[in-house]
C-alpha cells in the first residue's frame, strides 16, 4: 500500500493506494494550517480505509514547486513517517500531478502546469502528452509565459498560477482548466505507477523540496 501526502499549494491532502488504484483520501482547501491538519488527516484516512501504517510499503510526497512553508510540512512529515517505518519515499512534483489530472480528464493536447510563485512570478512546466515533460519546471513572470504560449494557442493551462493570472492568459487566447491545486489522489496514482514500473524510492534523508528560488538572504547578498 502507498501513502501519499500533498501540501505543496493551499491544500492539505492525504491519499492511500493499493494494487487496484486509489483507495481512500481526504483533502482540505482554504485553511492554510498545514502543520495542524496533516497529522490528523493521515490518521483519519488510515482509519477510514481500515488500514494501518504497518500496511504501507512506501510514502509518496509532493516536493513542489510550491509554497515553501507548506512544502516543508509535507516533506518533513513524509520523512518522519518513512524513516520510522524504514521505508523509501517517492518524490512527485506538483507540476506532474497537475498535468496528469488534466490528461486523466481526457485532454489530448499540450499542457502547461502553472503554479503561483508569489511576487508576480509563476513556476511552470510543459507537457506534450501524458507523462512526457517537454520543459522542466522553471520560474518566470506570467507575462513572459503568456507571450511564449500565445504562439501555441492549443496549450491548456492548469494550476494556481494559471488561475491567479487567468485574465492575462485569456487575453493571450489561452484556455485555463478548472483544476487549481495538485490532487492527493492523482499524486498517489502517479507514485504507484512509477513503483510498478520499477522506479526506486529515495531514502527519507535524501528527500528535497524543489524550491526554484534562492533563499531570501542569498538574493539580497547577490544584489548588494
Amino acid at each position: 500500500m502507498l501513502l501519499g501526502i500533498e501540501t505543496a499549494a493551499g491544500l492539505v491532502g492525504v491519499a492511500l493506494a493499493d494494487a487496484d488504484g486509489p483507495l481512500a483520501g481526504v483533502w482540505l482547501r482554504g485553511d492554510r494550517r498545514h502543520a495542524e491538519t496533516l497529522g490528523p488527516a493521515v490518521e483519519h484516512v488510515l482509519t477510514q480505509a481500515g488500514a494501518s501504517l504497518a500496511d504501507v510499503d512506501a510514502v509518496a510526497v509532493d516536493v513542489g514547486p510550491g509554497l515553501f512553508t507548506g512544502l516543508r510540512v509535507g516533506v518533513a512529515t513524509a520523512q518522519g513517517l518513512a524513516a520510522g517505518l524504514g521505508l523509501g519515499v517517492v518524490e512527485v512534483t506538483s507540476v506532474d500531478v497537475l498535468a496528469q489530472e488534466v490528461y486523466d480528464g481526457g485532454w489530448e493536447g499540450p499542457v502547461a502546469a502553472v503554479v503561483d510563485a508569489r511576487r508576480a512570478e509563476v513556476f511552470v512546466a510543459s507537457y506534450e502528452e501524458p507523462g512526457v515533460q517537454t520543459e522542466a519546471p522553471s520560474r518566470q513572470s506570467p507575462e513572459t509565459l503568456a507571450g511564449r504560449l500565445a504562439g501555441a494557442p492549443g496549450t491548456l493551462l492548469v494550476g494556481t498560477g494559471a488561475h491567479r493570472y487567468a485574465a492575462l492568459f485569456a487575453g493571450a487566447g489561452l484556455r485555463v482548466a478548472a483544476i487549481r491545486e495538485p490532487s492527493p489522489r492523482v499524486l498517489v496514482s502517479i507514485a504507484a505507477g512509477r513503483l510498478a514500473a520499477g522506479a526506486a524510492p529515495v531514502p527519507a534523508a535524501a528527500v528535497r523540496p524543489v524550491y526554484l528560488r534562492e533563499a531570501d538572504a542569498r538574493i539580497n547578498w547577490v544584489q548588494r
Binding site: H34, V42, V73, T77, G80, L81, A82, G84
Partner: peptide, 14 residues
C-alpha cells in the same frame, strides 16, 4: 515546523 512535522511522522510510524 520541520522538527514538529517530522516528530509527528516518527511518532505515528512507531
Amino acid at each position: 515546523l520541520v522538527g514538529l512535522s517530522a516528530a509527528k511522522g516518527l511518532a505515528m510510524s512507531w
